[in-house]
């Protein structure tokens, strides 16, 4: 067994459902490559290890450790055991994990077991003389914070879609990692309903453009206008919590304090008042456009281009104007 690089950054990536590596994998490996040598720990269902390892190498993992779970119905604990074994083997300078639900469970349990420090919800990583440092954007983007561990490798959870850097592909060098199960009590996954027929629209997290709709649409049928503009612009669909609560769109589209945080090139807010909790998830976008019939709506305080008007008039006109310009 060859030694692992001294500046190894351990990146945990999971295979989800029947698909390949989780969406966050490219960004996690991209971030790792900027501060050290990326070593991937791939966690997969039985039989999916070698395909996942190849995929991780293409995304920039210099070395890959494969762990295929023996029982995919056990929730969380086997991943913690695998990470524990991988850290023993690799002795990394930092551990990068997605700030997803499963990622947070893994990071939290691992940190509690190993007494490692956690840098939560990072939007970037860097290296100083003392080690790996995490960058955070907190209180809805109002503050930039950097954090680190007092000693030892920090466990850094990385906000999904926040990393643009991508690593160069590496020749695959993989091995299977032996894991001693902790036998800790765990919950069971009794069944799983996969979301199939993924739309052709871009993923909201990390999207370059977002068109978001609020309560102003009034109904699920009328909310379809959001999708039409999004498709014209090649944008992802976002929503306010009020639109989610009203059932216009699933919760995974919610932007804001308790939803997704985006930092897009373009953010179009339609029929959204701009409550502080909504702004917390979008105000770091480069260009903000708003359409609202109330000229006092707080969204205008942060909009680069605001239109006071009825969205049912403005948006259809905008769509046909954009389509006409495309044809020119």
């Amino acid at each position: 067994m060859t030694e692992f690089p001294r500046d190894a950054i351990l990146v945990v990536v999971e295979v989800q459902g029947s698909g390949g590596l989780e969406q966050a994998a490219a960004g996690l490996l991209g971030a790792a490559a900027a501060v050290g040598t990326p070593v991937a720990l791939v966690l997969t269902p039985p039989g999916a290890g070698s395909a996942a390892a190849a995929e991780a190498a293409v995304l920039g993992a210099a070395r890959v450790l494969i762990v295929e779970t023996t029982d995919p119905s056990v929730l969380g604990v086997p991943s913690v055991d695998a990470l524990f074994a991988a850290v023993e083997r690799v002795r990394p300078d930092a551990i990068l994990i997605s700030h997803s639900l499963d990622g947070r469970d893994l990071a939290g349990r691992y940190a509690a077991r190993s007494r490692a420090a956690v840098c939560a919800d990072a939007v970037g990583v860097a290296r100083d003389e003392e080690g790996v440092v995490a960058h955070h954007s907190v209180y809805g983007g109002a503050y930039n914070v950097t954090s680190a561990s007092t000693f030892g490798a920090p466990v850094i959870t990385v906000r999904q879609g926040s990393i643009e850097a991508r690593a160069t592909a590496q020749p695959e060098e993989s091995e299977t990692l032996a894991v001693t199960p902790s036998e800790k009590p765990a919950a069971r996954i009794d069944s799983f309903e996969e979301e199939v027929g993924a739309s052709s629209r871009p993923e909201l997290r990390g999207a370059a453009k977002v068109v978001a709709g609020g309560r102003g649409f009034g109904s699920q049928e009328q909310f379809a206008l959001v999708g039409q503009l999004a498709d014209t612009l090649g944008a992802a669909v976002g929503a306010s919590r009020a639109a989610v609560d009203a059932g216009y769109v699933p919760q995974s589209h919610q932007v804001g304090q308790t939803g997704v945080s985006v930092s897009s090139q373009l953010y179009v807010a339609l029929g959204i008042s701009g409550a502080i909790q909504h702004r917390a998830g979008m105000q770091t976008s480069k260009m903000i456009v708003a359409v609202n019939k109330d000229s006092d709506a707080p969204i205008f305080e942060i909009a680069d281009f605001g239109v006071v008007g009825d969205l049912f008039k403005v948006v259809p006109q905008l769509i046909s104007a954009l389509q006409a310009r495309k044809k020119q």
Binding site: V291, V307, L318, A321
Partner: peptide
């Protein structure tokens, strides 16, 4: 805040 216009029937065109 940037510019804010009031729709006079052509705001969709201006936004485009």
């Amino acid at each position: 805040a940037g510019v804010k216009i009031i729709d006079e029937g052509d705001a969709g065109e201006k936004l485009a």
